[in-house]
Amino acid sequence: MTETPVVHIVDDDDAMRHSLEWLLKPLGLEVKTYASAASFLSNHDRDRVACLVTDVRMPGMSGLELHEALAKAGSTMPVIVITGHGDVPMAVRAMRAGAIDFIEKPLNNQLLIERIHEALRLARARRDEAGQIAPIRARFSALTAREREVACLVAAGRQNKMIAHELGISLKTVEIHRHNAMDKMGATTGADLARMLTLAGAI
């Protein structure tokens, strides 16, 4: 069964929260609303495919501060920032923090819907990628220190002879470590191994 994606709305304006909920629910999206950044931080489900639509100016933590706090905590949830007081410095700050868009009120409903769908596609892609990364990292961790060295050099495009020279070991030893590393990683080619190690952040 396909999981219904969630759109989190954080805005201290009751009318805006209700308006966005009314706009988005008929699209088959689950909508959760919060009157403050603190309420969102203490209640949202981190494991769902979701995006965040947040106002900038709110009592307590602002929308931009909320976004920056999520980024600092390692969240990959796509964020759309909205405001009735837009200016260039705010836009720059939001985009530098990784927001996928910065939209001024009054909102263009069609534009917002398009951006939300884009954000949810990105959220799904990020979760799928994260699901691949954990097992790849586990397999990489299971390699011996020498197998890791050889694997990284293979992924970088080095030939066996070059690896042997660089590491000061015999060609036969390189071949053995290469075979073992490829087998343990489940890689069939050097390019396949490079993709895995790139995803895992090993190279």
Rank of each mutant, 00 (worst) to 15 (best):
A94F: 10
V49Q: 01
I100N: 08
L64I: 15
C51W: 04
V79C: 08
D101L: 05
R46F: 09
E104I: 07
V92R: 11
Q110N: 08
M95P: 03
Q110W: 06
A69R: 12
L107I: 09
C51F: 01
H85D: 15
L64R: 06
R46L: 11
I100E: 12
P59I: 07
V53M: 14
R46K: 06
V88I: 12
S62H: 01
A91P: 03
P89S: 04
A50C: 05
F102I: 12
A71K: 15
V88K: 01
R93D: 10
D87S: 13
A73D: 14
K72I: 15
D87L: 00
V92P: 06
S62K: 11
G74M: 11
N108G: 02
I80A: 02
M95E: 08
R96T: 14
I100F: 02
R46Q: 03
Q110M: 13
R96Y: 10
L70M: 14
A50Y: 00
L64V: 15
A91S: 03
R48E: 14
D45W: 02
T76R: 06
D47H: 04
A71Q: 14
V56K: 07
H67T: 14
G84I: 03
V49K: 04
H67R: 06
S62G: 15
V79Q: 01
R46Y: 01
P78K: 04
N108C: 02
T76H: 05
D55Q: 07
T54M: 03
K105L: 06
M58F: 05
A94K: 07
P78A: 03
T54S: 08
R48C: 00
G86V: 12
Q110L: 08
V92A: 07
H67P: 04
R57D: 13
A91K: 15
S62M: 15
S75P: 08
N109A: 11
P59A: 15
V56W: 11
A91Q: 04
A97M: 09
D101R: 06
A99P: 07
L52E: 02
R48Y: 00
K105F: 08
K72V: 15
A94P: 13
A50H: 04
E104G: 03
N109D: 15
L70G: 07
Q110A: 15
P59C: 08
P59K: 12
P106M: 11
I100Q: 11
Q110I: 11
V53K: 10
P78C: 07
Q110F: 09
A71Y: 02
D45G: 01
